[in-house]
């Protein structure tokens, strides 16, 4: 045994290697790197296939349509409706986008078009730092800072605008879609700004100078020359932010209330898909079909996020491909 362990490298280098000429070695190395590169895709495939397989029990008990549109979630009675969770996911994400996108676009335009290079050299790494904060920290911040604020704010809004269903307060706490949206908005801000800055940089300086040389102001140049050219890339950045928001789990479940009901107001609690899975998987697993239902929820979430990622990738490729011409 011992001798063999020592001999193995010698056997490899003196016996096998001389038979492998350079081209064979090259192909071998290329093949190995290829295998390692496709591994992530293989893992994605395995995840999808295993989710589909484990979801089978509930799919044979209920139809897909029934699951996706079902409003009732009573695992003990065997009722598994995903609709409140899907709705909750989109409500919170949409809220976050409404809050995040306008300021993000403005600051990205400021950072890449207006400010001195020195300022953007400081601001961009700071934004990256923001992206690195663990999501549970955002969650705690949301609980201690945002939720109480929203609670007070919602009573005032309810007093004046309560007759509009979107702003009515049916929930005495601040744990709500608005709180989740605010926390998520802060979390996706660095991503949207980073992608937008990157996209704005695809516009050649010569094009900006051409517009300025004609006596255009900076704002005219941005409005008529830079932004029209980068519209699809900015859209990609927003969708990219959305797909991050859709899948965000920890920070959201800490502030969003987690009530399995379709929300109708921004002050209602919601129960997004990631929160459902994280809160419940591993508990009460003796309930029949519960495990399959939660994995079904995971599959739905995965499909939604993949779909959004796909859109943003296609839009980004479109603009980056064009800027190379």
């Amino acid at each position: 045994m011992k001798a063999r362990r020592v001999l193995q490298p010698i056997w490899f280098s003196s016996v096998l290697l001389p038979f492998l000429n350079r081209r064979v070695k090259d192909r071998f190395v290329g093949g190995a790197f290829f295998l390692i590169t496709i591994l992530p895709f293989a893992i994605l495939l395995v995840v999808i296939v295993s989710l589909i397989l484990r979801t089978q029990p509930i799919l044979s008990a209920h139809s897909i349509g029934e699951l996706l549109t079902g409003q009732k979630w009573y695992p003990l009675k065997g009722q598994f409706g995903f609709f409140p969770f899907i709705a909750g996911t989109f409500w919170v994400t949409f809220m976050a986008l409404i809050l995040a996108v306008p300021p993000c676009l403005l600051s990205a335009i400021y950072l890449s078009e207006y400010c001195r290079p020195r300022i953007s050299a400081v601001a961009k790494p700071l934004l990256d730092l923001l992206a690195g904060i663990p999501s549970v920290v955002y969650g705690v911040w949301g609980m201690v800072a945002i939720v109480p604020l929203v609670q007070v704010f919602s009573s005032h809004v309810n007093k004046w605008l309560g007759f509009i269903p979107l702003f009515s307060k049916n929930n005495p706490t601040g744990y709500s879609i608005l709180s989740g949206g605010i926390v998520l908005a802060v979390m996706i801000t660095p991503f949207i700004i980073a992608v937008t800055c990157e996209v704005l940089r695809t516009v050649p300086d010569g094009t900006r100078l051409a517009s300025l040389a004609l006596g255009a102001t900076k704002w005219q140049t941005i409005k008529y020359v830079v932004l029209p050219q980068t519209r699809s890339g900015i859209f990609a950045g927003v969708v990219f932010g959305a797909s991050r928001a859709l899948g965000e789990t920890m920070a959201v479940l800490m502030v969003v209330g987690n009530v399995a009901k379709v929300p109708s107001s921004i002050f209602d609690p919601a129960y997004p898909l990631p929160a459902l899975i994280a809160n419940n998987y591993g508990e009460m697993m003796s309930i029949p079909l519960y495990d399959a239902a939660l994995l079904g929820a995971a599959l739905v979430l995965l499909i939604i996020v993949l779909f959004f990622n796909l859109i943003s990738t296609i839009a980004l490729r479109h603009i980056i491909g064009r800027s190379k011409i």
């Binding site: 051409a210 004609l214 008529y224 050219q229």
Partner: peptide
């Protein structure tokens, strides 16, 4: 007016390139 070393047409039609300055 400036004629640069490399032509940088604005990302719009031929017509709008000429009309751009008139409009702004």
């Amino acid at each position: 007016g400036l004629l640069a070393q490399h032509p940088f047409p604005l990302p719009m039609s031929i017509y709008d390139n000429v009309a751009y300055g008139l409009r702004i």
